[in-house]
Design a protein around this nucleic acid. Structure first.
Lengths: 231, 231
DNA sequence: TCGCCTCAAAGATATGACGTATTCAAGTAG
DNA sequence: CTACTTGAATACGTCATATCTTTGAGGCGA
């Protein structure tokens, strides 16, 4: 879903290093140094730097070098940046930010989904809710995660709002990160799963208000759990 | 806030052309052709293309060329993409999407702002509310727009959530676009301005619930007005 | 001390050569 | 006639090198 040839190798090294704070704001890198360090040509370095520049992680200036930019300017919505930060030191802050965002967006998306979802999407949501129940009972964490991500992404997509839809990827990153770093109960909570079924039902029935409220409960629960785990 | 040397020239041409749908999905561009068309070297073309690729507007494949990607994959949160789309054919769709997003996010941000804003930010909000009143009375549309953008950006920033804060830029683009394309009443509505003052008051007083509700009313109003204007 | 000037450092751009994956089609076997 | 193989053409990918342009810093003079 994301790599790009040889510059990708640089990105995979530099991105996490910057996003994790290992290379703090103000650090200057020189293009020539990067060429040597990674044994690649100027072309490759420049293109990798261009991409980082596009995310506002660095800025390149003549006679100065490539400077790591302040965190406040970063493209925090870029899925790549999100993953890098989730893997690094400020994972807690990142998870909290994303939690608030989800709390704002997902209920609204659920309401819209109840109004605008296609029949296909409604069916899919119901099916996913069933899958969630089953994989939870079987304690198949990997499959559970997959379906959970799919469920939330489907709701967001069904909202028929392209911007909400794009947050599906973001929410996926959160859920993956949460599982990967063992920030959720090993046994998925039955209550949360019931709520997912209810969202599916509400969307199928076109009950916007109920879909919204139920989704809010889900995300609030996730956020509360997160705060508990992070202190 | 955004250009970049010579590749920027290419971006300024290709970006809008793609975002506006002038170059539909599936269109293939060849690097050599772009070199000639813009009279620049491969280096420059490659870097510009890399940036577009980073936004998922195009994908570059060997033996095929540079292909315009489906809209569904675009980085719809990238401020550059937003501006390009606002300037082009699907401005209505873009404005509607952004409207829904604002409706989800800004009330939540206002509530958080009421809890977490610094004294400085609270003062700033009050001051901006006053400015809004005055510039509206003076019918100084440019200054009004500036302060309006600043107001909303300040609320988002004061939420102490980096992701909300980043949407300040996005909201700014919407407001600018709306004014630029004459999608709002020439004389700002007194009622909307009163609401801004009330948000400022609520945030100053730490009344999260009132801040949230009032902000919701503001954004709902904007969205309603938009729908009216767009049919 | 202040301001201007010069120089050099580092990125920005241009260019030519070569590598490599991919597609398309010709050719061949079944 | 179909299906598979193979080869060549193509367009991007990478490298190496040369030159241009900007800009920061130190020096020089008023």
């Amino acid at each position: 879903m994301e790599i790009q040839g040889l510059p990708g190798r640089l990105l995979a090294e530099l991105g996490p290093a910057i996003a994790s704070g290992e290379l703090p704001e103000g650090t200057v890198l020189r293009a020539e140094e990067l060429e040597e360090r990674f044994g690649v040509s100027r072309t490759v370095v420049r293109e990798a730097v261009r991409i980082l520049e596009g995310m506002h992680l660095v800025a390149s200036r003549r006679r100065v070098g490539i400077t790591v930019q302040p965190k406040s300017g970063w493209d925090v919505f870029d899925p790549m940046v999100i993953r890098w930060r989730l893997a690094g030191a400020d994972r807690p802050a990142q998870l909290r930010s994303l939690g608030s965002l989800r709390l704002a967006v997902e209920p609204a998306a659920a309401a819209l989904a109840a109004r605008h979802a296609t029949d296909d999407e409604r069916r899919r949501l119901s099916a996913l809710a069933v899958e969630l129940t089953m994989t939870a009972r079987a304690a198949d964490l990997a499959a559970f995660l997959r379906h959970d991500i799919d469920f939330h992404a489907t709701v967001l997509r069904a909202s028929r709002n392209e911007m909400f839809a794009h947050l599906g990827e973001t929410v996926g990153a959160v859920l993956t990160g949460r599982t990967e770093y063992h920030l959720m109960p090993h046994q998925p909570e039955p209550y949360a799963i019931r709520l997912h079924r209810e969202v599916a039902e509400a969307v199928c029935a076109g009950e916007a208000e109920r879909a919204e409220q139920t989704m809010r409960t889900i995300v609030e629960g996730a956020l509360a759990e997160l705060n508990e785990q992070l202190g």
